[in-house]
């Protein structure tokens, strides 16, 4: 495939992996440029269908208005439970990386 025909260019792949916060190795990038464009080409089959005038689906069975009452309950977790799976914590807080 000629480079100009690529939908997913190396630059776009970089942008997408930044948006998705996924650090890719050079090898993965090479594989993805190849595979993703092939897959997209396959996806493009949907261009054949005229969907104008069709409403998008929300709940597939058309369900609406499921709401609950404003009452405390559910499955509250203790601080110990909330922190139990965090790798790093301090004084009840969950520790996250630095911002800058």
């Amino acid at each position: 495939m000629a480079r100009s025909e690529l939908t997913i260019t190396p630059e776009l792949l970089d942008h997408l992996s930044n948006l998705a916060k996924l650090k890719l190795t050079e090898e993965e990038k090479r594989i993805f440029i190849r595979d993703l464009n092939r897959i997209l080409e396959y996806f493009n089959v949907i261009d054949e269908v005229d969907t104008s005038g069709v409403d998008q689906v929300f709940h597939i069975l058309g369900l609406t208005n499921t709401m609950r009452e404003d009452e405390v309950g559910g499955e509250p977790l203790s601080q110990e439970q909330a922190l139990s799976n965090a790798a790093s914590k301090e004084e009840g807080y969950i520790k996250a990386p630095r911002m800058v």
Binding site: M67, R68, G74, Q79, A82, E91
Partner: peptide, 22 residues
């Protein structure tokens, strides 16, 4: 105190789901 007012949903635990307050 921090992280005492949470459940699987607001903590974003895998598999948790939102349910809208009327």
């Amino acid at each position: 105190p921090p992280n005492v007012n949470v459940c699987p949903t607001c903590l974003g635990l895998p598999g948790s789901l939102p349910y809208l307050n009327r």
